[in-house]
């Protein structure tokens, strides 16, 4: 067991996979000489050379498309898009090509590309760099969408994604890169099918993923001090989502609060809420509540930025309300 940062965990996976399989290569803006915008690939250019750690121009549609093409001819590309905000330039490649080609070719070709991108606010990077658009990608059939929240998943999910025959999008929350966590020795493999019960509880289910897990867990601890036993679900895989684990937990607690940094309207939290209402209605003892992003472009000043994304106190308040202590 050793303590590593989320960033180091991602780097572990990059190195392990490149050593294990020569078809794996990394490309993206500033991944080589600069070591990656979030320093995930620091030192890899020296270790693996320019052919496998490739700096690209500022052209998301171009290099994501190139990654899809490489995947089509048998490579295992890891494409790093600096943030989800810039990935909109590559949406056409991701949705119209990567997600559809297996379907449109009648199964003749598949696209084993892995696209990593940072997401979320909290680093004072303002509206062009701070949004959470998991909902855009989870809407699309043909994509697998991952949201690691722990160092074990940061490493393990990237490796598992490379083994997946179809396109996988990984959201790495920018607030997590410096987070430290325990990495067991040897580092464990992880699955891409199950949500994880991060904390067991009986009174209310707090459903979250990625960057919101930490505050949600803090909220659960604070609720425990007030005698409320909150269960925390780390969804991990946002598409296809492990609904059974969600419904089982709601069947136990009869209450659900969804915590997601994305905007509330038409958002990721809306789908989770709707599914619970559709399939776990008779288990509910209170309306489903959502703690989600405020509907503004993420502001630059830190106090406004924090006010626009879910805070621990809001999660506590929502949980208290649904258990009737509000």
């Amino acid at each position: 067991m050793s303590e590593v940062t989320f960033r180091e965990a991602v780097r572990m996976a990059l190195r392990e996979s490149m050593h294990a399989d020569e078809r794996v290569f990394l490309m993206g803006e500033d991944v080589g000489r600069y070591g990656g915008s979030y320093a995930c690939s620091m030192g890899l250019l020296e270790e693996f050379g320019e052919a496998r750690i490739r700096d690209t121009p500022l052209s998301e549609s171009g290099f994501v498309g190139a990654g899809i093409g490489a995947a089509l001819v048998g490579m295992k590309p890891i494409v790093e898009v600096m943030t989800v905000n810039f990935s909109l330039l590559a949406l056409d490649q991701i949705i119209n090509n990567a997600a559809t080609l297996r379907h449109m070719s009648g199964g003749q070709v598949n696209v084993p590309v892995v696209i990593r991108m940072s997401t979320g606010a909290g680093k004072q990077l303002a509206a062009q760099h701070s949004h959470s658009w998991e909902a855009f990608y989870t809407h699309v059939p043909g994509l697998k969408v991952l949201s690691p929240a722990t160092v074990v998943d940061a490493r393990g999910m990237l490796l598992a994604a490379l083994d997946d025959p179809d396109p996988v999008v990984i959201f790495e929350h920018s607030g997590l890169y410096n987070m430290k966590g325990e990495m067991p020795e040897p580092p464990p493999a992880v699955d891409l099918t199950h949500a994880r019960v991060a904390r067991e509880g009986t009174d209310v289910t707090l459903i979250t993923h990625g960057g919101c897990l930490r505050r949600t867990t803090e909220a659960a601890a604070a609720l425990a001090e007030r005698g409320i036993s909150a269960e925390v679900l780390d969804l991990r895989v946002l598409r296809p989502l492990d609904w059974n684990t969600v419904f089982e937990s709601v069947a136990k607690t009869h209450r659900a609060v969804i915590v997601d940094e994305g905007w509330k309207s038409w958002g990721f939290s809306a789908e989770v809420s709707a599914r619970i209402a559709e399939d776990a209605f008779w288990m509910l003892d209170a309306p489903v509540r959502r703690v989600a992003g405020v509907e503004v472009p993420i502001p630059y000043p830190t106090h406004l930025e924090q006010a626009s994304i879910p805070q621990t106190a809001q999660v506590i308040a929502a949980a208290l309300e649904v258990v009737g202590h509000g």
Binding site: H254, F281, W282, M283, L284, D285, A286
Partner: peptide, 8 residues
């Protein structure tokens, strides 16, 4: 007025 769980 009763919750779905109470009705169930």
């Amino acid at each position: 007025m009763a919750s779905p769980w109470a009705r169930h």
